[in-house]
Nucleic acid binder design. Structure first.
Length: 364
DNA sequence: TTCCGGTAGC
DNA sequence: GCTACCGGAA
C-alpha cells in the first residue's frame, strides 16, 4: 500500500512536471503517425535531439511514408543517414519498412509485441512507438529512464547486469499510469534528458527531489552504478636476475613500448624452457641452474603483468663487459638507479634478503 | 582519452 | 552475457 502510494506519486509528479517543463514542440511530437514516431525513435537511439532534428527533416522530405522508404534503394537510405552513425540502424529501418509493406500491407503493426519483431526495434523502442501512436500501456527502459529509476528508487548495481536490468523493467512496468501514457513516456524521456542528467543533474528543479533516494542519501553521483571495470588483459613475463659478485645485469629496453629506453632486467622469451641455456647463448655466461624468485604482479593502465623473476648466478670473473645497453648494477646501490618499480622491488627483495637468496660467495 | 548507449549477433 | 557499432560529450 505504501508502495502503491509512492508509485502513484511518481507518475503523477512526472506528468504534472511535464505540463510545465517538458518538451512539447519537437518535430516528431504532436503526431500519431507510427512511421514518423518510429523514425524519430530510431534516430534518437544513441543520438541527441539537436543532432537528430535536421536529419529527421531531410529524411521525411525524401521518404514521407513507409511505402516510399520500402521502395527506395538501401544506398539512398544510407546516404540520408550519413553522419548520424550506427548505420545498422538505417539498414534495419529499411528492412523493417519492407517487412511492414510485405507483411502488413503498409499498415504499421499496432501492438508493442508485434512492433518489437521488426528489425532494429527492441522492447523499449517498440513500447515507445506503441505508447505514442496507439496509447498502449507499455514501459520503456532506455538509458535516461534507467538513470532516473536508479536514482529515485536508490537501485544499486550496474544496470547492464541482468538482474539489475530485470528489476528495472519490473519497476518501470509497476510505475505505469493508467491514463495519459503518451505524456508519461515523453515525460520520462524529458526528465532524464534535461534534468536528471549523468554529469550535473539539476536536482533543485527536479519534481522527484523530495522522494529521490539518491538525493536523500547523497548518492546522486554514484547512481546508476558505473560499468564494472573489465578485467584487464593478463600478461606474463619471465625476467632474468643475473647476479655476479654482488652485481646484477641490466639491459636497455627498445626505445618504444613499455619502459622504452629504460634499463631493466632482461626478459626471457616466453617460449624458452631453458633459461640458463638462453642466458648462456645470449650473453656468453655460464650460469648455474635457474632459481625461481617470488612472483610479482604489476598493473599498467591497460594490462596486468605477472613477472616471474629467475635467479641465475654466474662467476664474478665471467662478467661480460658493460656497454651502452648493458650495465652491471651493484645490489647495494639500487637507490640511485632509475629503475621501473617492479624491477626495483625484485632487486630490493634480493638485496634485502641479506644474501639469503644467493649462494655462498663465488658460486656459479 | 574515456565514457556512454539500444539492438543484433554471437 | 558479451561485444561491435559510431559519434558526441565529459
Amino acid at each position: 500500500m505504501e508502495r502503491t502510494t509512492r508509485n502513484g506519486d511518481f507518475a503523477t509528479r512526472l506528468i504534472a512536471w511535464h505540463g510545465g517543463h517538458g518538451r512539447h514542440d519537437l518535430p516528431w511530437q504532436n503526431t500519431r503517425d507510427p512511421y514518423r514516431i518510429w523514425l524519430s525513435e530510431i534516430m534518437l537511439q544513441q543520438t541527441q535531439v539537436d543532432t537528430v532534428i535536421p536529419y529527421y527533416a531531410r529524411f521525411l522530405a525524401r521518404f514521407p511514408d513507409v511505402v516510399s522508404l520500402a521502395a527506395a534503394p538501401v544506398d539512398d537510405v544510407l546516404a540520408l543517414w550519413s553522419g548520424l552513425g550506427y548505420y545498422a540502424r538505417a539498414r534495419n529501418l529499411h528492412k523493417a519498412a519492407q517487412a511492414v509493406v510485405a507483411r502488413h500491407g503498409g499498415g504499421f503493426p499496432r501492438s508493442a509485441a508485434e512492433i518489437a519483431e521488426l528489425p532494429g526495434i527492441g522492447r523499449s523502442t517498440a513500447a515507445a512507438i506503441a505508447a505514442f501512436a496507439f496509447d498502449e500501456r507499455a514501459a520503456i527502459l532506455d538509458g535516461n529512464v534507467k538513470r532516473v529509476l536508479c536514482r529515485v528508487f536508490g537501485i544499486d548495481g550496474f544496470p547492464g547486469e541482468r538482474a539489475v536490468e530485470q528489476r528495472l523493467w519490473a519497476l518501470a512496468e509497476e510505475l505505469l499510469p493508467h491514463t495519459g501514457i503518451g505524456t508519461y513516456i515523453q515525460a520520462q524521456m524529458d526528465l532524464g534528458a534535461t534534468l536528471c542528467t549523468r554529469g550535473k543533474p539539476a536536482c533543485g528543479r527536479c519534481p522527484m527531489a523530495d522522494i529521490c533516494v539518491a538525493l536523500r542519501e547523497e548518492r546522486v553521483a554514484e547512481l546508476p552504478a558505473a560499468r564494472p571495470k573489465k578485467a584487464m588483459p593478463q600478461r606474463h613475463a619471465q625476467v632474468a636476475v643475473i647476479v655476479a659478485d654482488g652485481t646484477v645485469l641490466l639491459e636497455r629496453r627498445p626505445p618504444t613500448g613499455i619502459w622504452g629506453g629504460l634499463l631493466t632486467l632482461p626478459e626471457i622469451p616466453g617460449d624458452s624452457s631453458d633459461p640458463a641455456g638462453w642466458v648462456a647463448a645470449r650473453y656468453g655466461l655460464r650460469p648455474g641452474e635457474a632459481k625461481a624468485l617470488p612472483v610479482l604482479n604489476h598493473v599498467f593502465t591497460h594490462f596486468r603483468l605477472e613477472i616471474t623473476p629467475l635467479l641465475l648466478e654466474v662467476d664474478g670473473h665471467g662478467r661480460m663487459a658493460a656497454d651502452a645497453d648493458h650495465r652491471w648494477l651493484a645490489l647495494d646501490s639500487l637507490a640511485d638507479a632509475g629503475l621501473p618499480t617492479p624491477v626495483r622491488r625484485i632487486l630490493a627483495e634480493l638485496a634485502g634478503s641479506g644474501g639469503d637468496l644467493l649462494s655462498p660467495r663465488g658460486a656459479g
